[in-house]
């Protein structure tokens, strides 16, 4: 680098004498700058060299975005319909992948056209890519830790239990808006159970059961399509291969 710089010093252009367009080029890369290579018209015009997106383009993008929104909603409804009609359960992973791919396509259109990144300075694209890399590392490595806590002892990982394995409900003194009250309400059980108990107390068992049926009666019990915690799910779910007993949930 600068070891041999002084040999070139004489040839270095003087920015003080440049036109504005030349100067812009020069600042972009002073070492590569050669005024004779600078053609008029490469850069811009009447002072503002920024891309003007045509209205047609914007409207087209809006149309595409709406189309993909409809598509993603449709795919999610279709999945439920397929499950109800054909007892065919698509694995969650596939759904996630489809929905996220569609969202990514939408995002690319927004970023490229609406946010002008297609015509923008490459540096801004670089900023975005580095950011996405950071996001990926953050989520990826954190999630990886969660999945790999039991290398030495089988029972070490995957044991996250509300209330803690050590104490469960007994010691939990969760308080509902405890602050500022003399006698905070202590919730001795899990939050869900506590809410249910209160409702049963309020309505009585029979009415509660009726209300519960009202809430959940209109749909089939949710199939337990869990990427289950004792073994990883492989391939499509049960009912594709074995139609004897539908794997219904307990609720």
């Amino acid at each position: 680098m600068s070891d041999h710089k002084h040999e070139h010093d004489a040839k270095r252009p003087d920015p003080a004498t440049m036109t504005e367009a030349e100067y812009r080029d020069y600042m972009a890369d002073p070492h590569a700058f050669h005024p004779e290579h600078h053609g008029a018209g490469e850069h811009a015009h009447d002072g503002e060299g920024h891309h003007v997106t045509s209205l047609f383009q914007l409207r087209a993008v809006l149309g595409i975005l709406i189309f993909f929104t409809v598509l993603t909603v449709a795919s999610s409804r279709a999945e439920i319909w397929v499950a109800d009609t054909f007892d065919l359960y698509i694995p969650t992973l596939v759904n996630v992948l489809i929905a996220m791919s569609i969202a990514t396509i939408k995002a690319v259109f927004v970023v490229a056209i609406f946010m002008h990144l297609k015509w923008d300075n490459r540096l801004n694209l670089l900023v975005l890519l580095f950011t996405l890399m950071g996001v990926g590392l953050f989520i990826g490595l954190t999630a990886m830790d969660l999945g790999n806590r039991k290398e030495f002892y089988d029972w070490k990982g995957d044991q996250i239990v509300a209330g803690g394995t050590g104490g469960s409900a007994g010691f939990v003194a969760l308080t509902r808006s405890a602050r500022g009250k003399d006698e905070p309400e202590v919730i001795p059980t899990s939050l869900v159970e506590h809410a249910r108990n209160r409702a049963i107390q309020k309505y009585g068992e029979a009415v509660f059961a009726e209300k519960l049926a009202q809430k959940h009666g209109h749909h089939d019990p949710m199939p337990a399509r869990t990427p289950n915690r004792s073994r990883a799910t492989e391939g499509l779910t049960a009912d594709l291969f074995d139609t004897t007993v539908p794997a219904g949930g307990d609720h």
């Binding site: 490595l141 954190t142 830790d145 969660l146 996250i160 239990v161 509300a162 209330g163 803690g164 939990v172 969760l174 939050l191």
Partner: peptide, 14 residues
Amino acid sequence: DPRIGGDPVLFQHF
């Protein structure tokens, strides 16, 4: 918050 099922190690990651 482990009392509600959260993961304290997740906080450490964050």
